[in-house]
C-alpha cells in the first residue's frame, strides 16, 4: 500500500501541495483529479522521488520511499515525446536498463509488450518516424516494461483513437487485476468514473474531495429520478412528493422530497401514468468536479 501523509511542498512564493493525505491500495485504480495547476504533477513528482517534500511522508508497504523504490515505479508523463532519432527498441531497452533490467530481460520484455500493443513491426524504426499514437504506445511500454508495482499514468488516453483507447483501457484494467497500484491522473471525468474505484480531487494544492466513487456519488445524490412515459407531461409536476421537475415530451427529470425514497415514488406513480422507463439519476463525476472546483474558486 502506498500512503501519503501530511504531504506538503513549498516553493518560494507558492505552496504547490498543502497537507494532503491519501492511500492507494493495490488492485484498485486510483484517480488523481484536478484542474490544471492544481498540484497533481508536484504530487506525482514527490511520489516518484524526483523532488523531496517540504514536510510529510510517503511510505510504501510501511517504509519511507528512497531510491531503491525507483525500480518499483513506472511513469507515463502527460507530455509525449521520445528521442526522435533513436530506434524504438534501443529507447525501450535503455529505459528498461535504467529501471534495473538486464539487457536480455529488457529486450525480451520489449518484444512481449510490442506484440501486446500490436506494433511489433515498428521496433527497428526511428521513433520520430512513428505516428503520434504509436509513439504514445512506446511510452506506455517504457512505463510498464520493468513490471513496476506502482504505475503512474498521466492522461494515458489522450491522443489515441477509440480502438486504441479501448486497447490501453483493457491493459490498465488487467494490470490492476494483477494487484498493481495504479494512479491515473486525468481530466476525462467519464473515464475516471468508469475505471477508478477511488478518487482524490485536488485544487490549489489542497484536498477538495476524496473517497470511493460510490460513496461520493451517494453523498452528492440529489434524490432525482428520470421517468419516461407516454402522454403524461401535464401530470408530472402534480405528482405527490415532487419538489421540482424538468418536463420534456417523453421524459422528465424529477427531484423528490428528501423523505421519499425513489422506489416508494415508483410504487405511487405506476398506476397513475403509463410508465415506459424509470431510473435513478446519479450526479456525474464531471458535474461534481465542476461544482466543487467552482465552489473552491468562489471561496
Amino acid at each position: 500500500m502506498l500512503v501519503l501523509e501530511g504531504l506538503r511542498k513549498e516553493y518560494k512564493n507558492l505552496t504547490a501541495v498543502d497537507e494532503i493525505s491519501f492511500s492507494v491500495e493495490p488492485g484498485k485504480i486510483f484517480g488523481l483529479l484536478g484542474p490544471n495547476g492544481a498540484g497533481k504533477t508536484t504530487t506525482i513528482r514527490m511520489i516518484l522521488n524526483i523532488i523531496k517534500p517540504s514536510s510529510g511522508t510517503i511510505t510504501y508497504n510501511g517504509e519511507i520511499i528512497n531510491h531503491a523504490f525507483d525500480k518499483l515505479t513506472g511513469y507515463l508523463p502527460e507530455e509525449r515525446g521520445l528521442y526522435k532519432k533513436s530506434k524504438v527498441i534501443d529507447i525501450i531497452v535503455y529505459f528498461g536498463q535504467l529501471k534495473g533490467l538486464s539487457k536480455i530481460e529488457a529486450i525480451s520484455n520489449a518484444q512481449l509488450w510490442l506484440k501486446k500493443l500490436e506494433i511489433e513491426d515498428l521496433k527497428e524504426r526511428k521513433s520520430g518516424e512513428l505516428s503520434k499514437g504509436n509513439q504514445q504506445k512506446i511510452q506506455f511500454i517504457i512505463a510498464t516494461l520493468h513490471n513496476p508495482e506502482v504505475l503512474i499514468l498521466d492522461e494515458p488516453f489522450t491522443g489515441f483513437d477509440p480502438v486504441n483507447q479501448q486497447l490501453i483501457k483493457n491493459i490498465i484494467v488487467s494490470l490492476a487485476q494483477q494487484g498493481k497500484i495504479i494512479i491515473l491522473s486525468t481530466h476525462q471525468m467519464d473515464t475516471a468514473e468508469k475505471l477508478c474505484k477511488q478518487i482524490f480531487l485536488i485544487n490549489k494544492g489542497k484536498e477538495v474531495l476524496s473517497g470511493s466513487i460510490a460513496e461520493i456519488k451517494k453523498k452528492y445524490a440529489s434524490n432525482t429520478v428520470r421517468i419516461e412515459y407516454e402522454n403524461a407531461s401535464d401530470k408530472i409536476s402534480a405528482l405527490p412528493g415532487v419538489v421540482q421537475a424538468d418536463v420534456f415530451n417523453n421524459y422528465a427529470e424529477v427531484q423528490l422530497e428528501n423523505n421519499i425514497a425513489p422506489e416508494q415514488f415508483l410504487k405511487t406513480i405506476i398506476n397513475q401514468i403509463s410508465l415506459k422507463g424509470f431510473s435513478i439519476i446519479e450526479p456525474s463525476l464531471n458535474k461534481i468536479f465542476i461544482d466543487e472546483i467552482k465552489k473552491d474558486f468562489d471561496n
Partner: peptide
C-alpha cells in the same frame, strides 16, 4: 533541451538520481 521539452527527463530522474 530535447529531454526537457518532451519530459523524458522526468522518466530519467524517476529511474536514477
Amino acid at each position: 533541451l530535447e529531454e526537457k521539452s518532451n519530459r523524458l527527463i522526468e522518466i530519467l530522474v524517476s529511474s536514477c538520481t
